[in-house]
Measured scan of single mutants.
Amino acid sequence: HTCEKCSTSIANQAVRIQEGRYRHPGCYTCADCGLNLKMRGHFWVGDELYCEKHAR
């Protein structure tokens, strides 16, 4: 898989955010504040991922 955020190959663990879309665990972050979304879930606003606070 290729990380959709940093565009590099994912060798080990990948986070599947949608069918066919993956990120490194470290790239699974809010587009606004950079908070890691692991164990928090994500919210779509347009084509970007946000934490609950910044999705509003």
Score class of each variant (00 low, 15 high):
residue 18 Q to M: 06
residue 16 R to I: 14
residue 2 T to D: 05
residue 5 K to Y: 15
residue 3 C to M: 00
residue 51 C to H: 01
residue 30 C to K: 00
residue 53 K to C: 04
residue 23 R to T: 09
residue 10 I to L: 04
residue 42 H to G: 05
residue 33 C to P: 01
residue 3 C to N: 02
residue 30 C to E: 00
residue 33 C to N: 01
residue 17 I to H: 01
residue 21 R to Q: 12
residue 43 F to H: 15
residue 19 E to I: 01
residue 11 A to N: 15
residue 55 A to M: 10
residue 17 I to C: 03
residue 52 E to T: 03
residue 22 Y to V: 05
residue 27 C to Y: 00
residue 33 C to V: 00
residue 22 Y to M: 02
residue 38 K to M: 10
residue 37 L to N: 03
residue 47 D to G: 09
residue 15 V to H: 09
residue 38 K to W: 03
residue 30 C to A: 00
residue 10 I to D: 11
residue 41 G to Y: 04
residue 35 L to R: 07
residue 21 R to V: 13
residue 14 A to I: 10
residue 37 L to G: 06
residue 11 A to H: 10
residue 26 G to W: 13
residue 44 W to F: 12
residue 16 R to K: 15
residue 22 Y to F: 13
residue 49 L to T: 07
residue 21 R to K: 11
residue 6 C to V: 06
residue 11 A to V: 00
residue 52 E to V: 02
residue 27 C to S: 02
residue 40 R to A: 12
residue 23 R to W: 04
residue 7 S to R: 07
residue 21 R to A: 12
residue 6 C to W: 00
residue 47 D to M: 10
residue 25 P to K: 11
residue 45 V to H: 15
residue 26 G to A: 12
residue 33 C to S: 01
residue 11 A to W: 01
residue 5 K to A: 14
residue 48 E to V: 11
residue 21 R to S: 11
residue 40 R to G: 15
residue 32 D to G: 08
residue 39 M to N: 13
residue 38 K to Y: 11
residue 31 A to H: 06
residue 32 D to S: 07
residue 22 Y to T: 03
residue 6 C to H: 02
residue 5 K to I: 15
residue 53 K to G: 08
residue 3 C to R: 00
residue 5 K to H: 06
residue 12 N to H: 15
residue 22 Y to C: 05
residue 17 I to T: 05
residue 8 T to R: 15
residue 10 I to V: 07
residue 52 E to S: 05
residue 22 Y to A: 06
residue 20 G to A: 06
residue 27 C to D: 02
residue 52 E to K: 07
residue 44 W to Q: 13
residue 42 H to R: 07
residue 39 M to S: 13
residue 28 Y to H: 07
residue 23 R to P: 09
residue 45 V to M: 10
residue 41 G to K: 08
residue 28 Y to M: 09
residue 54 H to D: 14
residue 33 C to T: 01
residue 16 R to W: 15
residue 20 G to I: 06
residue 13 Q to N: 15
residue 39 M to G: 15
residue 3 C to V: 00
residue 14 A to K: 04
residue 13 Q to C: 07
residue 51 C to S: 02
residue 9 S to F: 00
residue 8 T to N: 15
residue 49 L to R: 00
residue 6 C to N: 03
residue 46 G to W: 04
residue 15 V to M: 06
residue 5 K to Q: 14
residue 10 I to R: 03
residue 3 C to Y: 04
residue 41 G to R: 07
residue 13 Q to D: 15
residue 47 D to H: 08
